[in-house]
């Protein structure tokens, strides 16, 4: 009966190493989002909640218990992984015998977004509006304009999941292939050469 074993579909949520973003975890464990996951065929929700986030996560898990049980999802979390998040993002990308293609939901930290772009997994970026200097929202906006990611908002994360399915069909390559003005570009190397005065 091995071949009838159900394939898994993972939604990986990452809030970053330091900046606390309880609102994102809260939304990810809300009944609405859990049922949206269920209706999109997800089987697993994995949350990276950051340093010192364990208590908050456990508390929210307790509150969300009934919702989690009724959704039938496997929900778990961890604080950080020193080896990086690439491993989890590749699992969310899926496309193997056991894993269906899933999704990454993350804060708008540049390191996390770059990890996701390199992995080429559909990504929903949710900027933390509680941050003072909110240049992160501009990054999320600019990237979603160019259709690299989906700019998610806390109040419509369920809808963003549907968008992610569409994004999967036209997943773009990262880093951008040399095109247009970048084709003639000299790159960082060209600048360093000029400053060094290398003539060849």
């Amino acid at each position: 009966m091995a071949q009838t074993q159900q394939q898994q579909k993972l939604c990986f949520v990452s809030v970053g190493a330091t900046a606390e973003f309880p609102a994102l975890i809260n939304t990810a464990l809300s009944a609405d989002f859990l049922s949206a996951l269920q209706s999109q065929g997800y089987t697993e929700l994995l949350v990276q909640y950051g340093e010192d986030g364990k208590d908050a996560f456990d508390g929210l898990m307790k509150q969300a218990q009934s919702g989690v049980e009724s959704s039938g999802l496997k929900v778990s979390g961890f604080a950080l992984d020193k080896a990086g998040l690439g491993r989890y993002m590749r699992r969310a990308k899926g496309g193997s015998k056991t894993m269906l293609p899933g999704v990454v939901v993350c804060h708008a930290g540049s390191g996390t977004i770059l990890d996701a772009l390199r992995t080429a997994v559909p990504t929903i970026v949710v900027p933390n509006s509680a941050l003072l200097d909110n240049h992160q929202a501009e990054l999320a906006e600019a990237l979603s304009e160019q259709q690299y990611v989906i700019h998610g908002k806390l109040d419509n994360l369920g809808h963003a999941l549907q968008e992610a399915e569409k994004l999967r069909q036209r997943q773009k390559e990262w880093p951008p292939v040399n095109a247009g003005m970048q084709r003639q570009g000299k790159g960082l190397k060209g600048i360093l050469d000029e400053e060094m005065g290398f003539l060849d």
Binding site: S110, H135, E138, L139, E141, I191, E195
Partner: peptide, 14 residues
């Protein structure tokens, strides 16, 4: 001591 500065990729507008 010539200097090259690269602004963060996270800085889109400012």
């Amino acid at each position: 001591m010539r200097t090259v500065y690269v602004e963060s990729w996270a800085r889109v507008k400012r």
